[in-house]
Structures are given as structure tokens and as C-alpha cells.
Amino acid sequence: MKACSLHCLKIENISVAIGDNAILRDVSLHAHCGELTAIIGKNGAGKSTLLRAILGEIPHTGTVFFSGHDGSPAGGLKIGYVPQSLSVDSGSPTTVYDMLASMISNYPVFLQRRQKTVSRLRDHLSAFNASHLLYKKLDRLSGGELQRVLLAAATLRKPDLLLLDEPVSGVDYSGLQLFYNILDSLKKSCDMVILIVSHDLDFVRRYADKVVLLNRRVEAAGSPDEVFKSGEFKRLFSITDAAKG
């Protein structure tokens, strides 16, 4: 399947506050199918909060609207979400299979495995260079492996909207490169809007179609070049930060 470029995620005037503390103020953005939109910003800028508001997990004002190619509301929006981390603690026996099988079927994972499910998951994971991880425990995955497995999990049911909260640590350069390559091929081949919170400005510059600079509100938005050359970007990120990526 090729991306249609016509589905659109419209976020209008999202605000989130905890008590008197405004975490997000009037954030608006449009993202299209077949585009990778990166949300960047310093720690505490409200990036993950924005994703959680889109997911409907936290109280917010404003609207999140997903429209079809003719501008009409697209019903039954399927969201794929890649969290920054999992709640699984060290020593958990839960495997990649246990997680993914729990997502695609109600057949309890504590019963005998079904070959059909195993084959489907192995096939799906192979596109993420992760089929060898099927029976590995989640707590034994490296940062890069976990990220690819979570991306595979998020795309299991072909979502319309893919939301990614990139992990801050635990992924080395080659792991990130592999991850962004996979994301790039997903963008080109699948019919979905991709929104990623990223901390790696070098990868954002190379792979994103649009960048949104967030600092509790939208400071700048546009192509990577436009945003990285903007005064707001230079004010928020020192050159040293940018060089570190």
C-alpha cells in the first residue's frame, strides 16, 4: 500500500493544565498521511503531554480531529502508540510473544501457543529486524531492540495514526539509524500519519518532513530547515546542544 497523503490529523488549540500550572497552551498542528512530523523541544516542554492528550489519557481542552481524504471525519480512528518505556520491571517473565499475542488475540497467552499466531508475529517482526526476539523476555531487550519491538507492536493492526514517544536513553547510534530507516519505510509504504517526539535533532533533520518546536506552546513549525534556522530554535537550543543532537 502507498501513502495517500490525504488523511489529516488536525489538532486545534490543545491546552493542558494541572491546577494553575499550564503545561500546554493552545497547541495547534496539522499532520498528513505519509508525512513524518517530529515534535522537538527541551525537557519539560510538554511533548509527551501532547501525545497523551491526543491519546485522550489526560484532561485537556481543544480538539483532536482526524479526517478522511474528503475532509469528513474518519470514524474508528486506530492509533498505534509507542511509549517511552514499559511498566515491566526487571525480572518479569513476560516475553515479546506474550505482549504481541495479547494485542492481536483474546486467546489467553497462558495456554498452549497457536502456530498461526506465532507465524503471523514472526512475519510481522521480520519487517522490524526483530523476528529473532519473539521469545525473548521484555526486560532482556536492549534499548534499540525494545524500540523496534514497540514499533512492531504499534503497527500490528495497521493504525491510521502512529504516535511515538522516543526513549531518551538506551539506544545507540546504529540502533537509532535502524529505527529511523524502518520508520522511513513505514512512512512510504503505509497509509498513516506519523507523529514522533524526538530528542535526536540529527535524525529529525534527516528524516522528518515537518518539525514542530514546542515549549508549552508552538514556538515554530515548518520544514526541518525552516525550524532549525528559526530564532526560536536558536534561543531554545544552544549550538552545543544541537551539535550533541
Partner: peptide, 15 residues
């Protein structure tokens, strides 16, 4: 399976 997924990640389960 739903209990299991909530235990792994309430955010993924909710999404």
C-alpha cells in the same frame, strides 16, 4: 490478555 497488556503498558492498552 487485556489484563496482561495493561500490566505491560497501560498507555498501549488504552491506545
Amino acid at each position: 490478555n487485556r489484563f496482561n497488556l495493561i500490566s505491560i503498558s497501560p498507555e498501549i492498552a488504552s491506545s
